[in-house]
Design a protein around this nucleic acid. Structure first.
Length: 596
RNA sequence: GGUCCGGUAGCUCAGUUGGAUAGAGCAUCAGCCUUCUAAGCUGAGGGUCAUUGGUUCGAAUCCAAUCCGGAUCACCA
C-alpha cells in the first residue's frame, strides 16, 4: 500500500472515531506537501469542514493529534496552516521502507491480474521505409506494452503490415519500368529504402505523364485517370487480386526486401512483436458480418448495391461498409480483424496505437461493432497520438522533408559518439564497448525525447534539441545511473554492503527524506502510467528522481559519509535509486550504461 | 459548416479526481571541479495560464460564449 493510501485510510478511520462520520476516499485529498511548508503529506481539510461543522484550524488540530496518537510509528509531527494539515512521516518508517526494498530489482511491479491485452503498433506500409512518425508509434506502443506487463497484464504485441493495395503496386510498377533488375544486393541499398525509392520514382513519372496529357489538351481529372503508368498500376492490382503468378512473385520478392529492411530497423530500435498480421491475409475478412447485419436490419443497402450503416444517432454519419461491386473497404476488414483478434487470443482488451488522424475512423469502428452486437466492442481502445511535426512545419514526403528513421538513428548514435569522445571519460573502453555505449546513449536520447511528452499531444521535433544530452533528457538520467555505479565500485558494494541489512538510526537529513519519499512513489507512478497508457509519466518521474539524486549527490558524500551508519543508509538510497532508474528507463525501452 | 483535440515563461513541455506564492528543461546572466563522474550542482531574471463571463471558501483545472491553431467528416488507404 502506498503512503498516500495509508494516510487516507488512517484519516478516514480517525475521522470516524472522532466524529462518527464515515468518509470515503473521494471526500478529501491527500497531497504531497509543497516544499515551502514543513511536512511530507498534506490533508486538505476544506472539503470536510461543511459536514463536520468545524473550522479548518480546529479540525486540523483534532485530526492531527488523533493521527499522531493512533499511529505513533507512522507519523512524527504535524502542523496546520489555514485549511491544510501537514503531516510528517517518522524517520523509522522511511528507513524501514528503504531497507525492505532497496535491493528489489522489481520494485513497482504488480502481481499478475490475468488480463490479456493486445497492443497493436507500428503497422507499416511495405512501400517505403520507416520515418520519424513511425518511431514515435513504435516507441509508444512498445513502452505501453511493457508498462501494462509491469502492471500484471499478459500482453501480446502485434503489428499489422499493410502489404497490399494500389500503393504497393506503384513501387512494383516503377521497379519493373526503371530498375533494370536492381536488388538490395546489387545496389547495396537496404531493401525498404530501395523499394521506397521506386515509390518516389512512380510519383515523379506519374506527375510527368499527367503534365504531358494536360499539355495535349486534357483536363486535370482526365489526365490523372488516363496516365499510362496509373492504368498499368490499376491493372496490376487486379492481377494481384486474381493471384496472377508473375505479379505475386514480384510482390513476394519486393515485400521480402522490405521485411528484411524493417527487421534490421526494428532490431536496432528494439521493437518486437509476438504476432504479425498481414493485410494480404486479412483484407477479405469481415464480409460475413455484412450479411448478418443486413438480416438484422442494422445495415442497409442502397440502390447501387453498396451497404451502409446509419450512425447519425451517435453524431456520426452514414458509413459505407461494402462497395457496390461487393469489394471491401478498410472498415470491412477492420471489423473482421477486430473480431478475429478477440476470438483467437481471448483478449480482455485490444489496444490500437494509431495516429490521431484516425480518431474518427476508430470511433466509427467501435460503434459499428457495438451496433452489430459484438461483445468485445467496448474493449477496443484507440491509443491515439499526435503527429510529429518539424520546426519548419509538417513532414511531407512530396517535399522531401520526411525524417528517415534509419538516418535519424545513425545521426543520434554518431552525435553520442562525438560528444562522448569530447568528454574523454571512457578512453579505456574497447571498440565493442564504445559501440555499445554509443548505441545506449544515442537511442536513449531519441527514445526519451519522443516519449517524454504526452502522446495525445502533437509534438514538434527539433533536431538540435533532440540530440541534446543535457537537462530533461535520457542521457541525464543515464548519467545519474552511471554515477551511482561509480560510487558502488568505489566502496566495493558487491562484497560488503549486501550484508548490512539493518536500518540506520539517527535523524534523516532533508534530502535523504525527500529521496526516500520520492522512491516510494514509483509504485503508484507505474500504475498511473498504465491507467493513462502514458509513458511520459514514467519519463517525468525518472527525470525528477535523477534530479533529486544529483542534488543529494553533491550535497552529501556516500563513500565518505559522516558515520558508518550514514554510509549504509546512503548506499541503500543509491542502490534503490539506481534500480528504479534502470527499471523505469527499461519501461521506456532505454538501457543504462555502467560508465559513461 | 458538423464533430473532436489543443492554446501555460522567448522556445519545448509538466501541472493528478478544483487546493497554499503556477513548475521543469533549453536559451540568457552570476557562481561552483584537490574529496564518490561538472553529460553535474547552486542562484537570478523571465507569466494577464488565449479572451470574457459564470459556478464557490478556493479555478490553469469545472461550465458557457468568443478568438486562434490543428485533425477529421471519401465507393482513399
Amino acid at each position: 500500500m502506498s503512503f498516500t493510501s495509508i494516510i487516507q485510510s488512517a484519516a478516514i478511520r480517525s475521522l470516524q472515531e472522532l466524529s462518527g462520520y464515515q468518509f470515503s476516499e473521494n471526500d478529501f485529498q491527500v497531497n504531497e506537501t509543497k516544499p515551502e511548508f514543513t511536512g511530507d503529506y498534506t490533508i486538505v481539510l476544506f472539503a470536510l469542514v461543511k459536514t463536520l461543522k468545524k473550522s479548518p484550524e480546529v479540525l486540523g488540530k483534532e485530526l492531527g493529534d488523533y493521527l499522531l496518537k493512533s499511529y505513533p510509528d507512522f507519523f512524527s509531527s504535524y502542523n496546520v496552516i489555514k485549511g491544510f494539515l501537514n503531516l510528517e512521516i517518522a524517520d523509522e518508517q522511511l528507513t524501514e521502507l528503504l531497507v525492505k526494498n532497496y535491493n528489489d530489482e522489481h520494485f513497482g511491479k504488480k502481481p499478475l491480474n490475468h488480463k490479456r491485452v493486445m497492443v497493436e503498433y507500428s503497422s507499416p506500409n511495405t512501400n517505403k521505409p520507416l520515418h520519424l512518425g513511425h518511431l514515435r508509434n513504435n516507441f509508444l506502443g512498445w513502452s505501453v506494452a511493457e508498462i501494462l506487463k509491469a502492471n500484471g497484464n499478459e500482453v501480446i504485441k502485434s503489428s499489422i503490415v499493410n502489404d497490399r493495395g494500389i500503393h504497393i503496386c506503384k513501387s512494383m510498377i516503377a521497379w519493373q519500368m526503371f530498375a533494370n533488375g536492381a536488388t538490395p544486393e546489387s545496389t547495396q541499398i537496404k531493401g525498404d529504402h530501395l523499394v521506397g525509392d521506386y515509390y518516389v520514382k512512380f510519383n515523379d513519372e506519374y506527375k510527368k505523364e499527367v503534365e504531358e496529357l494536360i499539355q495535349s489538351g486534357k483536363t486535370k481529372e482526365e489526365a490523372e485517370k488516363e496516365a499510362p503508368i496509373m492504368k498499368k498500376t490499376q491493372q496490376m492490382l487486379l492481377d494481384w487480386e486474381q493471384e496472377k503468378p508473375e505479379v505475386r512473385a514480384l510482390w513476394n520478392k519486393m515485400n521480402n526486401w522490405v521485411y528484411k529492411g524493417f527487421d534490421e530497423t526494428y532490431n536496432r530500435i528494439g521493437s518486437d512483436f509476438d504476432h504479425t498480421f498481414y493485410e494480404s491475409n486479412t483484407y477479405l475478412l469481415g464480409k460475413d458480418f455484412v450479411k448478418e447485419g443486413l438480416q438484422k436490419n442494422i445495415l442497409f443497402k442502397k440502390e447501387d448495391g453498396s451497404v451502409w450503416i446509419d450512425l447519425t444517432d451517435k453524431n456520426l454519419d452514414e458509413k459505407l461498409v461494402l462497395r457496390g461491386d461487393g469489394t471491401s473497404v478498410y472498415m470491412t476488414q477492420d471489423i473482421g480483424l477486430a473480431k478475429q483478434k478477440f476470438e483467437e487470443y481471448h483478449l480482455d482488451k485490444s489496444i490500437y496505437v494509431i495516429g490521431d488522424e484516425q480518431l474518427y475512423h476508430m470511433k466509427v469502428l467501435k460503434e459499428i461493432c457495438r451496433k452489430l452486437g459484438m461483445p468485445f466492442a467496448d474493449n477496443i481502445f484507440h491509443l491515439s497520438y499526435g503527429m510529429v511535426e518539424l520546426t519548419t512545419g509538417k513532414m511531407k514526403s512530396r517535399e522531401g522533408t520526411v525524417v528517415d528513421a534509419d538516418e535519424l538513428v545513425d545521426e543520434m548514435i554518431a552525435t553520442a559518439a562525438r560528444h562522448t569522445e569530447e568528454l574523454g571519460k571512457v578512453k579505456d573502453f574497447t571498440k565493442e564497448e564504445l559501440k555499445e555505449l554509443y548505441e545506449i546513449l544515442g537511442l536513449g536520447a531519441m527514445k526519451f525525447y519522443l516519449l517524454r511528452v504526452d502522446p495525445k499531444k502533437r509534438m514538434i521535433f527539433n533536431p538540435e534539441e533532440s540530440i541534446d544530452f543535457h537537462g530533461f533528457t535520457g542521457s541525464f538520467v543515464q548519467y545519474t545511473y552511471a554515477r551511482i555505479q561509480s560510487i558502488l565500485r568505489k566502496v566495493g558494494y558487491e562484497q560488503s554492503a549486501i550484508n548490512n541489512q539493518q536500518s540506520a538510526t539517527g535523524k534523516l537529513l532533508p534530502l535523504e527524506r525527500e529521496l526516500i519519499i520520492f522512491l516510494e512513489k514509483y509504485t503508484t507512478t507505474v500504475s498511473e502510467a498504465a491507467e493513462e497508457m502514458n509513458p511520459s509519466v514514467i519519463a517525468n518521474y525518472v527525470f525528477n528522481l535523477a534530479k533529486l539524486f544529483n542534488s543529494f549527490y553533491v550535497e552529501h558524500s556516500v563513500a565518505n559519509a559522516e558515520t558508518e551508519e550514514k554510509k549504509i543508509l546512503r548506499l541503500h538510497i543509491s542502490v534503490m535509486t539506481a534500480n528504479i532508474i534502470k527499471n523505469g528507463l527499461g519501461l521506456l525501452g532505454i538501457k543504462v550504461p555502467e560508465r559513461m
